[in-house]
């Protein structure tokens, strides 16, 4: 089979409207960024809380945190997307359910960001737990001996150190968020993968399309990586983490 190359395809108009294919890709990039960044903020806040819960002395809280992590880690992301999109609204009270199904603005985006955020929060929680466990016991004991309450010890002693230790693993989680956001195509979010499939069908220039989209994902991951490296350098604990990146 011979492939007919056409690099000018990005400037051409789509078959069904007056946009160009480039416009489609830019829209896709916008939604990919929106879903990924919203999900990441959600994942960080929930993940830090759940990760911290799993290191408390309370058995109940530890079990709660463990259940959270196991729940989100053992179901494929795609199935979780479907669960949030099709199943969760059915379990809401009737009025809410109708509102979510019929009136909620940007329904696909909200669902995808929530789903990806919760999914990633389980992974952030695992990293944070490992980070907290790697601190010397003495840090917690000393904080408590100085009269800090347990929440204060977490707020002022444990978390500020653990968060810095886990920046390298969180960097790869952050890059994963961009990759995983591609699954949102399945519930109709018009992100990069969705646009790639649409453009491939519409233009029949699959290779150019996928190359462009692959490049855009690269740029996202690379920027995320550099951003985290910058934060890592800025927040390094002098004398504790001897890492140069």
């Amino acid at each position: 089979m011979n492939y007919h190359w056409n690099w000018g395809i990005f400037g051409e108009q789509v078959k069904s409207g007056d946009e160009t294919y480039l416009d489609w890709l830019i829209t896709g990039l916008g939604w990919t960024l929106a879903v990924s960044l919203t999900a990441w903020l959600l994942a960080l806040s929930i993940g830090i809380a759940v990760g911290a819960l799993r290191t408390t002395p309370s058995r109940f809280l530890v079990a709660l945190g463990t259940a959270w992590v196991e729940l989100f880690r053992n179901v494929p992301l795609l199935v979780q997307m479907f669960l949030w999109f099709f199943v969760v609204p059915e379990f809401l009270p009737r009025d809410w359910s109708l509102w979510v199904k019929q009136e909620m603005p940007a329904k696909e985006f909200v669902t995808a960001a929530l789903c990806l955020g919760f999914f990633t929060s389980a992974r952030v929680a695992e990293q944070l737990r490992a980070g907290i466990m790697s601190l010397p016991r003495g840090q917690r004991d000393a904080a408590l001996a100085l009269g800090f309450t347990l929440p204060q010890a977490y707020r002022h002693v444990i978390l500020p150190q653990a968060l810095r230790i886990v920046i390298p693993p969180l960097t790869s989680e952050f890059m994963n968020v961009f990759k995983n956001s591609s699954v949102a195509f399945a519930i109709g979010v018009m992100e990069l993968t969705f646009q790639a499939r649409q453009m491939q069908e519409d233009s029949e220039q699959g290779i150019e399309t996928y190359l462009a989209v692959t490049l855009l994902y690269f740029i996202c991951a690379f920027t995320a990586n550099r951003g985290m490296a910058w934060i890592e350098a800025r927040t390094r604990v002098p004398g504790l983490i001897a890492r140069t990146s």
């Binding site: 990759k179 290779i207 996928y210 989209v213 692959t214 690269f218």
Partner: peptide, 15 residues
């Protein structure tokens, strides 16, 4: 490792 799996699946299916 740096390309989303969905995209890899689409790539192979195309190529």
């Amino acid at each position: 490792r740096s390309v989303p799996l969905v995209l890899v699946i689409l790539w192979f299916f195309l190529v």
